[in-house]
Design a binder for these strands. Structure first.
Length: 577
RNA sequence: ACCCUCGUAGCUCAGUUGGAUAGAGCAGCGGACUUCUAAUCCGCAGGUCGCAGGUUCGAAUCCUGCCGAGGGUGCCA
């Protein structure tokens, strides 16, 4: 009987502990870095330990002999059917079939699918999406939103108390320009029809004018000062801009199934900025240079950071320091994770350094991703070749609709639309989540909306096929497959599938530690392929009684893992496609 | 000039942080549908891991140099 403690451990954690004890039993002390990893190739066993080689060298022993001694140190521990020494000193581990089945059942029935609840009692703040007021969200914003949300869900699945905070750009010089634009160029009909597009239009018009007209520029500055001093009329306009923008953002968030616990823009921290500056002065961290206030960061190998401009205005770094201080005081987070594009790397290094100097205790992490580009050119607001997020999602749903209609012409219209929505959005999300974020990615419609191969729809389809199989089983037997059905291994493909299922808790743990949703995406795709191969080649419903129940149950557990894994990526799993 | 990333099959990308014969998808070729949902499965072909050195039992992965791409570098965010 396993203890609760062991049930909360991943397979690699369990095996690592087992092997560590085994090494310790033949050595004088307990080596620390004994780890067990999944094998790439089944012929090397299910898991492997590579520690003997490095350790032997340090101890002046022969690697193969050390490995052999470990293998022969005693009877096989729980869960392990056999171990063998291979190559220069690898220890290949073969799991015990009964243990595999027991573990697979446990993962299938566990409310957290075996994911260790390592985050219990810890708070993590995740700062993502963060669009600017008065600008529509385009495909440049999608990555922060989708990747950030996946990290959010990953940490929740590990038991962390997650605070998702949308740090919107609702304060700054653009509002003077916007207020003048609103007064002079506003078209009320357009504002009703497409509010955010109209705000963007008046902003761009006003901005163009300001570039060529100094009087206009001065007027914009004057409006900004009035706003910052609390002028009621400008204040109310500003509120209007924010409400309109938030309303538009919320539509996108609803479609993407993204929800924030906090929406605190830069303005929320505005009153704290003067205090931040005076603290920096008191601690002698800030000094004047060329009329501005700077923090020197040579000791960190970083360039100077300006915290207050010559005209008295504050910079982004100042706001971010104020934000961290506020978050620490209110929430005491163990960690704060920021998800932004790669251009802000230096900024985050600088402001993390300043935050630490001012006593910040939270672990600060910057998760960055490459900008998205269009095949023809770098996309930019100025050139007007942006793809609006809304248009992308519409196109995705349209293509998915055509696909669903072709596959399933009998599906009633409302359901077909609903499925098309889930599949279209899932395709867009998966395209973004399935690759390493830190690479430059070129946007193409076909890739973002891929419906076959390594794609969201492939995974959803795999899920739907299982759901259909389970329905069919229930219909025939008059009752769904029981959670208590005992599993058995009668075909190598069943074993391969179980081995994949066992990996899930490790994968989620690893993905969260690396802030990489692609690790989960990659795994789910492998799981689906393993399942598809099993399903295509091994009869389930048609199998003999007993074997049939076991296989159907295995299908059900696979479905559970697929559903949970996709849910962590923020991708829905319709029961029919 | 300096700093940060990236460079892997024709194309798009993985590669468990130093492990065994570098893997998928798309495209190409050959097979499997009166189905347990073929958006699938089985097989074939495709590689000087940008180039050159180095570190060690072992390198796509780590160090150095070079080439190429992208981003950044005191009053934008």
């Amino acid at each position: 009987m396993e203890s609760n403690n062991q049930k909360n451990m991943t397979v690699t954690a369990l095996l690592s502990a087992t092997l560590q004890a085994r090494f310790a039993s033949i050595l004088d002390d307990t080596p620390q870095d004994i780890t067990v990893v999944e094998t790439q190739n089944p012929k090397f066993g299910d898991y492997q330990c590579n520690a003997a080689m490095g350790l032997a060298k340090r101890l002046g022993k022969i690697p193969r002999e050390l490995a052999k001694a470990v293998v022969e140190a005693g009877p096989m521990p729980t869960g392990i059917a056999g171990m063998e020494v291979a190559g220069p000193g690898f220890i290949n581990i073969f799991l015990d079939d009964n243990w595999i089945l027991q573990k697979t059942s446990h993962i299938g029935n566990d409310p957290t699918s075996g994911i260790p609840q390592q985050g219990e009692g810890k708070t993590v703040i995740i700062d993502y999406s963060s669009p600017n007021v008065a600008k529509p969200m385009h495909i440049g914003h999608i990555r922060s939103t989708i990747i950030g949300n996946a990290i959010d869900r990953m940490y929740r699945s590990l038991g962390y108390h997650v605070i998702a905070d949308n740090h919107i750009g609702d304060w700054g010089t653009q509002f003077g320009i916007l207020i003048m634009g609103y007064r002079k160029f506003l078209d009320k009909d357009r504002l009703k029809q497409a509010p955010i597009e109209e705000l963007e239009r008046i902003y761009v018009t006003s901005y163009e004018r300001a570039r060529n007209d100094d009087d206009w520029m001065d007027a914009c500055r004057a409006e900004l000062v009035k706003l910052q001093k609390g002028d009621p009329e400008n204040r109310s306009l500003w509120q209007t801009f924010i409400e309109i923008s938030l309303g538009e953002f919320e539509k996108i968030y609803q479609r993407l199934d993204v929800h924030f616990d906090l929406i605190r823009g830069e303005s929320f921290y505005h009153n704290d900025l003067a205090d931040v500056i005076s603290t920096l002065r008191e601690q002698a961290l800030a000094e004047e240079s060329e009329g501005a206030l700077i923090v020197r960061l040579e000791d960190e190998g970083l360039p100077v950071c300006i915290v207050q401009k010559r005209d008295g205005g504050y910079n982004y770094a100042t706001t971010d320091v104020a934000t961290v201080q506020s978050r620490e005081a209110e929430f005491h987070p163990e960690r704060i994770i920021y998800v932004t594009d790669e251009r802000q790397q230096l900024h985050f290094k600088q402001f993390f350094a300043i935050a630490r100097k001012t006593g910040c205790q939270s672990r600060l992490e910057h998760v960055w991703f490459g900008l998205m580009r269009l095949p023809e050119a770098t996309f930019s607001t100025r050139q007007g070749n942006v793809i609006k997020l809304e248009a992308l999602l519409d196109e995705a749903e349209r293509r998915a609709y055509d696909m669903v209609s072709e596959l399933n012409p009998d599906m009633p219209e409302p359901e077909r639309k609903e499925v098309a929505r889930a599949v279209g959005i899932g395709a867009v999300k998966y395209a973004d989540l399935s690759q390493n974020p830190q690479t430059l990615i070129t946007f193409t419609w076909d890739k973002a909306l891929a419906l076959d191969g390594n794609s969201g729809p492939y995974l959803q389809y795999a899920y739907a096929r299982i759901a259909s199989l389970l329905d069919k089983y229930s219909a025939r037997e008059g009752t769904p497959i029981s959670d208590q059905t005992s599993l058995q291994l009668t075909d190598p493909r069943e074993r391969a599938l179980c081995i994949q299922i066992l990996r899930f808790p490790d994968v989620v743990t690893r993905a969260a530690a690396a802030y990489r949703p692609s690790v989960i995406a990659d795994y789910l795709y492998t799981l689906s392929q393993t399942y598809s191969s099993f399903y295509q080649n091994v009869p389930c419903l048609k199998a003999d009684p007993g074997v049939r129940e076991s296989r159907v149950r295995l299908c059900a557990i696979t479905a559970t893992i697929l559903k949970r894994g996709l849910n962590i990526l923020g991708i829905e799993t319709p029961a029919r496609i």
